[in-house]
Amino acid sequence: MAVMTTLAVRNKGLRPAPMVERNYAVHRHGWIMIISGLLESLFYLFSLGVGVGALVKQIELPGGRMVDYAVFVAPAMLANAAMNAAVAETTFNVFGKLKWMKLYDGVLATPMRPRDVAAGEITWALIRGAIYSAAFLVVMAALGLTDTWWAVLAFPGSVLIGLTFSGIGMLATTYFRNWPDFDWMMAFIFVMFLFSGSFAPIENYPSWLQWAVYASPLYHGIELLRAFSLGDLSPMLLVHAAYLAVVGAVCMGFAARRLSKLLYK
């Protein structure tokens, strides 16, 4: 009876913790995978930021300020890392558990509900992404790619990006049928990576393309993190953050509902 009352009370809110604990138990010995994920984003930073940066040297920001190219690209790589961590966790991993391992079928025979499962997986994706982002920021600071304390705000900023893309990833997963679908998703992610102002201010793009870029959540994430790491704050940042939050919340809402439909057959 005691168990019942506590559960009845808890059932009002979300219960993400058990799913997080489960994932932690699986990855407790798999830290090498997580470290390798961080290294992957550092490879991009060194190649497309530092390496290409040595060619470009300095670029002029829309406001007229000159910065090193690597300083310009680094926050975009951070945003990209946060996005990739969230997407990888909520698509590949969740899809595997949903369709192959049938893991959630077992979980749902307990008091856990589909929305608890979704919340747990998203929380786990955020934790994983936050570890990458924190480490990435430390590397950025160590390399002198940021020199302001505002850059600390890039950490919550990248968690927000993680939240948005966890929602998008979760929702996409409920629509996936098989692996070729993932290739198309990766294509979409990659197009965003190339065209969201990672490598040049989007003011350099043709104007029709600029409008398309405004729709890209990654663009808003990059603008947010870049402003923090350059110490270049403006009220526009609220718009960027709000866009990310709204897209994330809407996708999560739909994802939880669709997951219910998929699992409560």
Binding site: V3, M4, L7, A8, N11, R22, M101, K102, L103, D105, G106, A109, T110, P111, M112, R113
Partner: peptide, 18 residues
């Protein structure tokens, strides 16, 4: 549902083990 499931034990046809 959740309150009922809290007091059920289920052995599904396919084991759904982790």
């Amino acid at each position: 549902g959740p309150a009922i499931r809290a007091r059920l034990g289920v052995v599904p046809q396919d084991d759904t083990l982790d």
